[in-house]
């Protein structure tokens, strides 16, 4: 699943806001706490973050407002200049890029969706979606064709000539998504794309999003403050607090083995049986007898089987290949909430 080079790789990244962050950071011990730094008049938006994002992976960054998640994702695309550390995109240090190369990178590789959509109010749906193509100088005919294609993809066919304010919130975000996909980016950033929508629409949009992702299989960095949304969508979740990453792991692991008290609080009210899947429970060292189950099945989905079965260990396969087995008792504990 992971290729040689991670798509995005960041090491010890700092983003500090304040009067002279570089100088301040140079003379400050790295273990100084967020609150102490605030006392000094500096805000650590991103605090010593190291993280890799792999090809085709959906990484969800989760945190409450002010936790630094939006700042971090803006560092990935160099919308923010970082204060210290390195960020590499496909092996290239983006901080060393000249302005022109950076623009080229964004024009060819990156797409981003915003919480309040960030649509240009004076442009129609078609012109908004075609905007990135126009910026990179594609001719009118090709960009129109491509824009219509993505508009159709997000289900807005027939509204090409509408203006943003004539659309509902959900529709506006579809435009935002279409625009970010217009250039066929390899890396897709989504900054709380569904937070501004009401709950019913949000659910619908999440489904839509999963459908798209299955078709497109992009490398995705998705930001949310909604833990349920993170669990629903993520391959891996990074939980942030005060600019630092508390834990970065698969949803199963986070639910089963929260690394800090802060993370545990989030997982408390979660129905773990819906989150934990066979694949997450499976231990490679174990082997089981009899019919295997698919790694993607949640504990809840396996409930009947877990209760009726009698085996101690149940084998798990992913894409037809055995990857280990899990303990039935452990799965039952999760199902019954005894953990």
């Amino acid at each position: 699943m992971s290729s040689e080079i991670p798509v995005i790789s960041c090491k010890n990244v700092w983003k500090v806001f304040g009067a002279d962050p570089k100088a301040y950071l140079a003379k400050t011990p790295p273990d100084r706490s967020f609150d102490d730094m605030r006392e000094d008049g500096y805000i650590a938006g991103v605090k010593d973050v190291s993280l890799d994002v792999h090809q085709g992976e959906m990484l969800v960054i989760m945190g409450l407002s002010g936790s630094g998640k939006s700042t971090l994702v803006r560092c990935f695309s160099r919308l923010h200049e970082i204060t210290a550390g390195t960020i590499e995109v496909e092996g290239q240090d983006i901080m060393s890029l000249a302005e022109k190369d950076l623009i080229d990178l964004r024009r060819s590789k990156m797409g981003m969706v915003f919480q309040s959509f960030g649509l240009l109010p004076h442009r129609s749906v078609l012109d908004n979606v075609a905007f990135p193509l126009e910026m990179r100088g594609q001719d009118k005919h090709t960009r129109r064709e491509r824009a219509l294609e993505v508009i159709k993809l997000v289900g807005l066919e027939g509204r090409e000539d509408f203006f943003p304010r004539e659309l509902s919130g959900g529709q506006q975000q579809r435009v935002g998504i279409a625009r970010s996909l217009a250039i066929e980016p390899d890396i897709w950033f989504l900054d709380e794309p569904f937070s501004a929508l009401d709950p019913l629409i949000r659910k619908e949009m999440q489904d839509e999003f999963l459908r798209l992702q299955q078709m497109l299989n992009k490398t995705i960095v998705f930001i949310t403050h909604d833990f349920d949304e993170a669990l629903r969508l993520a391959d891996r979740i990074a939980i942030m607090k005060d600019g630092a990453i508390e834990q970065c792991d698969t949803p199963d692991k986070i639910v089963l083995r929260p690394a800090t008290e802060y993370v545990r609080k989030f997982t408390e009210d979660v129905d773990k049986s819906r989150v934990v899947r066979a694949g997450g429970l499976a231990e490679v060292s174990q082997t089981g007898e009899g019919d295997p189950v698919d790694a993607g099945l949640s504990v809840q989905k396996m409930a009947r089987m877990l209760i009726e079965d009698t085996r101690e260990f149940i084998p798990v396969i992913r894409k037809g290949k055995p990857i280990g087995a899990f303990s039935r008792a452990e799965a039952l504990d999760i199902l019954l909430g005894d953990q």
Binding site: L79, I103, M110, F114, S116, F117, G118, R179
Partner: peptide, 21 residues
């Protein structure tokens, strides 16, 4: 709005394009 600005940047606008569009 900063999001509109960022949307412009992420669309690969050059400085002049940012101002103009």
């Amino acid at each position: 709005s900063p999001e509109v600005v960022e949307a412009g940047k992420m669309s690969g606008c050059s400085r002049f394009q940012m101002l103009r569009h």
